[in-house]
């Protein structure tokens, strides 16, 4: 499965995603430059974490005008898989590819710490390989991760089952104490209606190797590969 990792000015988890895909998952991967208007032959586009354009104005507000984002929107509209992590999620929100917006954390401080995630859906390309009932331990690192949606958007998210990850306790209870940033309904990750675009604040690439203290992040990438292989198996390839 071929991956592309977008490099915006100020991205700083691009190399981390690249590393995990190439060295841990052993899949082909290439960088996609923000100034390019086309997406080459890849099966999944990753918008990595970082501080695109310094997060000046609002996180993701400037990056979403990059030429590559028009191509990403087209890629997504054609059913391509798009994974936005942290700043990548913020860019997807600013670009309107996912509903809602991010506010600064309720603590008004940057937070880098482990979180436990309850998986709300196992039928997405991003979660299909997660063992049922397993709470995932994946770290966050952000200042603006306090997810907000207006009541109408929120109803739609519920109706369409678009919430994929919620902050939870270790045993999977979604309670206020487990919410690290004030996110509405403990929301940590959502998909679009079609289910091919996921935005999540936690960083799966930071916990995909045992030496770093955890491997739960691998499930996200392995799900993508399993989904793609399944689809390839079904199709004419």
């Amino acid at each position: 499965m071929k991956f592309g990792v977008v490099v915006f000015p100020g991205s700083n988890c691009d190399a981390d995603c690249y590393w995990v895909i190439e060295r841990v998952l052993r899949q082909p991967v290439r960088y996609l430059w923000h100034g390019d208007g086309e997406i080459p032959d890849v099966d999944c586009v990753i918008l990595p974490g970082g501080f695109s354009y310094g997060d000046y104005l609002r996180a993701g507000a400037i990056a979403r005008f990059s030429p590559i984002m028009r191509a990403v929107a087209q890629f997504a509209a054609n059913g391509g898989l798009v994974l936005g992590i942290c700043n990548g999620f913020q860019i997807l929100l600013e670009a309107g590819l996912l509903p809602g917006a991010m506010r600064p954390n309720d603590s008004l401080r940057f937070r880098c710490c482990p979180t436990w995630l309850k998986v709300e859906r196992y039928d997405t390309p991003f979660t299909c390989a997660v063992p049922r009932g397993r709470t995932l331990r994946i770290p966050i690192a952000h200042f603006e991760g306090n997810y907000y949606a207006d009541p109408q958007q929120l109803r739609q998210l519920q109706r369409e089952r678009q919430v994929v990850f919620r902050y939870a306790t270790r045993d999977g209870r979604v309670v206020p104490e487990a919410n690290p940033n004030g996110s509405l309904d403990n929301i940590a990750g959502i998909v679009n209606r079609a289910g091919n675009v996921l935005g999540m604040m936690p960083h799966p690439e930071r916990c995909a190797e045992a030496v770093l203290g955890g491997e739960d992040g691998r499930y996200v990438f392995e799900s993508l590969i399993a989904y793609w292989q399944q689809k390839a198996g079904d199709g004419p390839r």
């Binding site: 354009y53 310094g54 000046y56 104005l57 400037i62 005008f65």
Partner: peptide, 9 residues
């Protein structure tokens, strides 16, 4: 820095 970056954008 913020003003300059927004100007460039």
């Amino acid at each position: 820095p913020q003003g300059r970056t927004i100007l460039a954008a």
